[in-house]
Amino acid sequence: MLTPDGFKVKAGEARFGVHYTMKGVTLNTLDIKISGKDTANNLAVFEQIGHTPNGGPPLHIHPNQDEWFYVLEGEYLFQVGEERYTMEPGDTIFLPRNVPHAFVQLSENARVVVSYAPAGKMESFFKVTDQWNSPPSKEEIAKVFEDHDMKVVGPPLKVG
């Protein structure tokens, strides 16, 4: 499906009114701003509110998607391939498909815009992680990543 007309998503709101909270990988909230349903699955854009100081996803790859982040608030450390970058408000980072990457939130509060092209299964991924009721095992995390066209290739980044 392709949305034929433009639309507005207000600050603090999500495209379809659902705020996803990841449980297990991080405790971040993700709001869909532009859905894959709006773009014939060519693009998905989320606002991620970071609630996980010193936390982040495991090192992973997206075989079929490019990803980029724009930092609105707070600080992060990103790894892309072998390179590490400290990110502050106003910084942008591009994570090409098939390149291992991860991040860790360095500040108490943080907020980024994150985009996936094509959209892939990211909306479904965040919906699944929102439904976890207890911390998942490493094996469960790896399976959910695999089910959503990602592959865990290492542990989360550590601060220090």
Rank of each mutant, 00 (worst) to 15 (best):
M87H: 06
M87A: 06
M87C: 10
M87Q: 10
M87T: 10
E88V: 07
E88I: 05
E88M: 04
E88D: 04
E88S: 09
E88N: 08
P89G: 02
P89W: 01
P89I: 02
P89H: 03
G90S: 07
G90P: 10
G90M: 06
G90N: 08
D91E: 07
D91A: 05
T92Y: 11
T92R: 07
I93C: 00
I93D: 00
I93F: 00
I93Y: 01
F94P: 06
F94W: 11
F94S: 11
L95P: 02
L95H: 01
P96I: 04
P96F: 00
P96H: 05
R97S: 12
N98E: 08
N98P: 04
N98M: 09
N98L: 10
N98V: 03
N98T: 06
V99L: 00
V99P: 00
V99M: 00
V99D: 00
V99K: 00
V99F: 00
V99C: 01
P100D: 05
P100I: 07
H101N: 04
H101M: 02
H101S: 02
H101C: 02
H101V: 05
H101I: 02
A102H: 04
A102M: 04
A102G: 09
A102K: 08
F103G: 02
F103E: 02
F103R: 01
V104D: 01
V104M: 03
V104A: 03
Q105D: 02
L106G: 13
L106I: 15
L106P: 13
S107P: 08
S107L: 08
S107T: 13
E108K: 08
E108D: 11
E108A: 10
E108S: 06
E108R: 10
N109Q: 15
N109F: 13
N109R: 15
N109K: 15
A110I: 15
A110D: 15
A110M: 15
A110V: 15
R111A: 11
R111S: 14
R111C: 12
R111H: 08
R111V: 10
R111Y: 10
V112L: 14
V112M: 14
V113H: 13
V113C: 10
V113I: 15
V114T: 14
V114C: 14
V114L: 12
V114D: 12
V114I: 14
Y116V: 01
Y116C: 01
A117Y: 13
A117D: 12
A117M: 12
A117Q: 13
P118V: 05
P118C: 03
A119P: 07
A119Q: 03
A119D: 06
A119E: 08
G120T: 08
K121D: 01
K121L: 02
K121N: 03
K121W: 01
M122E: 14
M122P: 11
M122C: 10
M122W: 09
E123R: 05
E123V: 05
S124Y: 12
S124K: 15
F125G: 07
F125Q: 08
F125Y: 14
F126A: 13
F126T: 12
K127N: 14
K127E: 12
K127V: 04
K127Q: 14
K127C: 05
K127W: 12
K127R: 14
K127L: 11
V128N: 04
V128E: 11
V128Q: 09
V128D: 02
V128S: 04
T129H: 09
T129I: 15
T129F: 14
T129E: 10
D130N: 06
D130A: 11
D130E: 06
D130V: 03
